[in-house]
Design a protein around this nucleic acid. Structure first.
Lengths: 107, 107
DNA sequence: TACTTTGATCGGTGAATTACGATGGAAAAT
DNA sequence: ATTTTCCATCGTAATTCACCGATCAAAGTA
């Protein structure tokens, strides 16, 4: 993962609403979670939510899964793990301390 | 660390130039590293570099240390560690897998 | 064949970001 | 005291972001 990628993914996570969306997606994942579900938990317009979702999508942090008339989204844990790894590498490279370290992922 | 903080810090890291600055700061840290040093490694204007530094500063990722006529900057490893922890917590909260995990820091 | 639901996408607006050169002020050197 | 060095900050232009309402296509339902 090179700097541009890391920066991109970081930026995708660099908005509270998107962190929230990720969380909503994760917690409701048992039942599959579509755009409408997310929207109704966030006081934002559907188009805005859709746009945030697109950002997460482009960053590879979630995946679209068409389900009949609706689109469900699932968190890409391996992508998150990859970022964790990259971050670790970065921080390790940065010096004496503070190296988060991932340790497990994708089924 | 709440969502806003995480998002802010992530956004600060969400630019390749800033990742670079962080790295430059870290590697040259033996000698202390000031704005001019950074600037001459990046094909960017001094004012632009200064601005990027300010972003990192505001995010608490680096610290300013006045050294006579110049300002030196040092990476705040504990802050990086804090972000690592927060990220870990987030990812853990997000589900089944992929939990980066930090394990050491500040002298 | 309508009609509805879902959600991506378009167009627009205002705010923020990124970049630059120029200014100004503080400390060091002369 | 004057000059030089360093760099934060200001002003500005171009770009991107965050948000909205409106629209349109696809798939399901009547």
């Amino acid at each position: 993962m090179r700097d541009d990628d890391i920066a991109n993914t970081m930026r995708a996570l660099g908005h509270p609403v998107r962190l929230n969306i990720l969380r909503i997606l994760a917690t409701q994942q048992r039942g599959e979670c579509c755009c409408a579900d997310v929207t109704e938990e966030l006081t934002l317009a559907q188009s805005t939510v859709s746009q945030h979702i697109k950002v997460l999508l482009d960053a590879g942090l979630i995946e679209r899964k068409p389900r009949g008339t609706r689109n469900c989204y699932i968190v890409q844990h391996d992508r998150l793990a990859a970022l964790g790894t990259a971050f670790t590498g970065l921080v390790v490279g940065l010096g004496p301390a503070a190296a988060p370290q991932r340790e497990a992922e994708q089924a």
